[in-house]
């Protein structure tokens, strides 16, 4: 598959726009899922995943053929989602604590969609709960946890995707695991 993608990229570089559709076809689910896990909602995820592919296409000439295309594509997607998270207005956060209350956030107001950890959650409910807990992590831990355990990249690959030293990846994955352990221990 790698070789097929490599050939497609060469064609795209030569100006063959149609060859890019095979590239999108192949990576669409991975990139969409990555954006969805990073952003926590389907609407933004679709926007950002599309934007990631468009940017990859526009900047295809700056992609070095000697490297892995997936690494490059994930980097574009990760940077886009982190930018998006930064630009969100803080008052849009559902989990922001409501003033004058203690420990009450907007989730407690959305009784039907909020799943409390003490609930007996199974199947789809459990999936939603895990998803919610991932999206609660700070973005810099979130991206690493998603890349490691959902997309199953090695630590070395993650260091290349995020362009940070391997040591930093390890520190962050330790903290991310600890944070999630505390959140998921009651499940």
């Amino acid at each position: 598959m790698d070789q097929i993608i490599r050939d497609k990229i060469k064609q795209v570089k030569k100006g063959d726009q149609a060859a890019f559709s095979d590239v999108v076809e192949y990576y669409q689910h991975k990139i969409y899922q990555h954006c969805y896990r990073m952003l926590g909602n389907a609407h933004e995820a679709e926007d950002m995943a599309q934007e990631a592919f468009i940017r990859a296409y526009v900047n295809i000439d700056s992609f070095d053929d000697g490297r892995k295309f997936s690494t490059w594509l994930y980097r574009i997607a990760t940077n886009l989602t982190i930018d998006r998270i930064r630009k969100r207005k803080p008052d849009f956060f559902l989990d922001a604590e409501i003033k004058g209350t203690e420990g009450l956030d907007m989730y407690s107001q959305l009784a039907s969609t909020y799943i409390s950890p003490s609930d007996k959650v199974e199947g789809i409910e459990l999936q939603r709960y895990i998803h919610h807990e991932i999206s609660e992590l700070p973005p810099k831990y979130r991206s690493i946890i998603i890349l490691r355990y959902i997309e199953e990249f090695s630590l070395q690959e993650i260091s290349e995707i995020l362009d940070i030293p391997l040591g930093t990846v390890k520190t962050r994955i330790h903290r991310g695991r600890e944070a999630l352990r505390k959140r998921l221990r009651h499940v």
């Binding site: 999108v24 669409q28 689910h29 895990i130 998803h131 946890i145």
Partner: peptide, 16 residues
């Protein structure tokens, strides 16, 4: 294990 059991999400139809 819980993380790895997370379902794989597919892109919406017509994404490409």
């Amino acid at each position: 294990t819980l993380l790895q059991s997370a379902e794989h999400i597919k892109a919406p139809a017509n994404f490409t």
